[in-house]
């Protein structure tokens, strides 16, 4: 009897792990694509907030989550476009632009939410995405529930990761992206439009971040609260470094963090425990620092990362 309880408990944690990893997979894979092309998008936090707000608001008003998602993708594209305009075309410092984006994200989502919903902050709920059971696979013992009884966004995040792997490492487009992040001038001399590649990749990171944020408000929970993203945008930056700028590494990093979150929530809900819950709250942030420290060697990061490309006049 105790054995079964233990297994069910573990299964519960792993189910939560996958769910809590999903927003990080979305934002992380998007960021991998942008960073492979040489652009660090520090504005993820802000874009995730805008995504969370948009998805929830459109979903709430229209009653259609699909419509909400479409709006989220549009917001992601617009954010990516503006970020690229500043970092790629204007060639501004990517950190400064990112910081501005995060302020903008906090300010806009907060302002609009309060304007639209006034006092009912955090009380309004919508019908969030439900789990989809994949035939046969979902009946597998133990892992069926973990992997194959999740909602559509969870599956999409994995598809997003597979797509990124395919494009980056199995197509000519991937070669172009990696060359732009490594030696943009060489890419330029081979007739590759460095700006275009960077724009497209930053757009991908915008969409990834917006979807990741939206997952929090319309799939993981069904409410929007201010600052719902609570640092996941910044954590994504660490995960991508931890994952050595590769989709698979990033996926693993996201899953590890999902596990931290899941364990943290699980421990927090345990009764009669003497450790203050603040310790568990602090866990993901602490682990992020550790993840960064475990990262050694610059050799593997794209050489042109963070450097604006100055085309010849």
């Amino acid at each position: 009897m105790e054995d079964i309880q233990w297994i069910v408990g573990l299964q519960g944690i792993l189910v939560a792990t996958i769910r809590l990893a999903t927003p990080l997979i979305f934002s992380g894979i998007g960021l991998v694509i942008a960073e492979q092309a040489g652009v660090v998008n520090i504005g993820l936090e802000g874009i995730m907030l805008l995504g969370a707000f948009t998805g929830w608001t459109i979903g709430f008003y229209s009653g259609s989550l699909i419509l909400g998602l479409a709006a989220v993708i549009i917001v992601g594209l617009i954010s990516g476009l503006i970020f690229a305009l500043f970092t790629v075309t204007i060639r501004a410092n990517q950190i400064v632009v990112g910081v501005a984006f995060n302020m903008l994200g906090i300010g806009l989502s907060g302002f609009l939410y309060r304007t639209l919903f006034g006092r009912e902050i955090g009380l309004l709920k919508l019908e969030s995405f439900q789990s989809i059971e994949i035939p046969f696979l979902s009946n597998l013992p133990f892992i069926g529930k973990i992997l194959f009884q999740q909602n559509i966004l969870v599956y999409s995040s994995f598809v997003f990761c597979l797509l990124a792997i395919y494009v980056l490492y199995h197509t000519a487009a991937g070669l172009a992206i990696r060359s732009v992040g490594e030696h943009p001038r060489a890419a330029d001399t081979m007739g590759i439009n460095v700006f275009l590649v960077r724009y497209l990749c930053v757009l991908m990171s915008g969409v990834g971040a917006a979807l990741g944020g939206a997952f929090l408000s319309i799939a993981y929970t069904n409410i929007f609260v201010e600052n719902i993203v609570s640092g996941r945008g910044y954590i994504t930056l660490a995960i991508v470094a931890f994952g050595r700028w590769k989709p698979v590494g990033t996926l693993i990093g996201a899953l590890i963090f999902g596990l931290f979150y899941a364990i943290q929530l699980n421990l927090q809900s345990l009764r009669g425990i003497v450790i203050p819950y603040h310790v568990f709250q602090a866990l993901p942030y602490f682990m992020t620092i550790l993840a960064l420290l475990s990262m050694r060697g610059r050799a593997i990061r794209p050489k042109a990362l963070g450097k604006p490309y100055e085309p010849s006049a």
Binding site: H170, A172, A173, A176, A187, M190, G191, I192
Partner: peptide, 13 residues
């Protein structure tokens, strides 16, 4: 390096 930029983007490597 030699085929960089010469192929259609979606061509498989």
């Amino acid at each position: 390096n030699i085929i960089l930029g010469q192929w259609k983007p979606w061509k498989n490597l």
